[in-house]
Design a protein around this nucleic acid. Structure first.
Lengths: 213, 213
DNA sequence: TCATTTTTTGACCATTTGGATAGAAATGCA
DNA sequence: TGCATTTCTATCCAAATGGTCAAAAAATGA
């Protein structure tokens, strides 16, 4: 993001493209090897350019990693942001689950990137977690709690409900190796179709207002 | 590693103790930094001995990691192994969930170790996953399916049920940083007590026979 | 066109790190 | 006690790796 103060200096087309190629290649490498396991050589090879060239565009391996994390965060959280207090409660939550599962299917590398980061202590995401992310989750948890209070959903701890949706949907991306080793599915799609049916059943049974005891 | 053929050579007490100290220290380091991020120096420092000494007992960093993985696997899977076809279905499953959650509380480092391993492609666990683990899961899934067929549980894809239990319980160990950043709990225990209540409610509602639609 | 800027890389460097060597200290055993 | 084995570490080495440098090649603009 150009600070625009000394030199607005529009980013050239070639710069935008090269940075994009590097980020794409780095995502591949980081998702498989993690930050420490990824090397500039591997990233450069995956991007089809020399190592100094990669450094020329980003300055350091760490900068690539940080840039990736930041640029993905927005897209990563958008399904939760879209959960609307004005919609039908059950529909809103089931839609959120489906969209999150869809992201595990389409953005498995990104999911693994975040998972590794948090697993290793989130050294460069800690602020976001207890700042923006906490605020977002608290806001949506309040929406869900309100739905429960109005009798539109069975009562269920809303924070843990959100955690459980994260855990279960991301599981299919982060631990895909294990899931596939056990299910031995004919196609990748089978897993996600089954998962969607399972999650829909699980949560609709638990959240139907009559389900309360 | 003595091949044990020419000399059975009973392991001395000091050997057993030192190896134990090293494994304990290595678990600390691997859980935080992953295989690549962990260095022999860090492990040696954590174990309170010199680097060559660590190598003397295990031969290589990789050997320590592999030994850890193997020696933990048994304990890791024991709660699922104990799920008995002869017990009360709902009790068996809720007990399994509670024991698995207990393990996330007491063995967070081990959970992170496995998570990182699988996340990065399970290069040295792939055989176990599609062999012993698959067999175990298939066996227990069959038990659950049978319970459903007998009308003792609401029908629910048993494989995905097991996945969901893994995902949700391990989430509290693997992503503890994120969970704590959002909940800001007064004590660690609060999180797990809430989680146990949540999971019990979620699964008992979904599995009660009447819950089927 | 030709000077200037940007893009690209081969060669190189310093640090980190896994691990080997050799020998010192401790221990066990006759 | 004295020899053999085990335990332990200081030191060193080679490979891997993040990053620099100088200079070539390509693009840009007057």
């Amino acid at each position: 993001m150009t600070t625009a103060l000394p030199k607005p200096k529009k980013e050239t087309r070639i710069q935008r493209e090269k940075r994009e190629v590097i980020l794409e290649a780095a995502l591949d490498v980081f998702a498989v090897h993690g930050l420490r396991g990824a090397t500039l050589d591997k990233i450069a090879a995956a991007a089809g350019m020399s190592k100094p060239h990669v450094v020329y565009y980003f300055g350091s391996k760490d900068a690539i990693y940080t840039t990736l994390l930041e640029s993905l965060l927005e897209r990563w959280l958008s399904p939760l942001k879209d959960l609307s207090p004005d919609g039908d409660p059950m529909t809103e939550i089931l839609t959120y689950i489906r969209r999150k599962l869809q992201m595990s299917r389409d953005m498995a590398r990104e999911s693994k990137l975040f998972a590794t980061e948090i697993l290793h202590g989130a050294p460069r995401t800690a602020d976001t977690l207890s700042g923006d992310l906490k605020a977002l989750v608290d806001e949506k948890a309040a929406v869900i709690a309100e739905w429960s209070a109005q009798g539109k959903l069975a009562p269920l701890n809303p924070h843990h409900l959100i955690f459980s949706i994260w855990a279960m949907t991301q599981h299919y991306a982060d631990f895909d190796i294990q899931v596939r080793a056990i299910l031995k599915p004919a196609s990748e799609d089978d897993v996600f179709d089954e998962a969607e049916a399972f999650l829909t059943t699980l949560f609709s049974r638990s959240l139907r207002p009559e389900a309360a005891e």
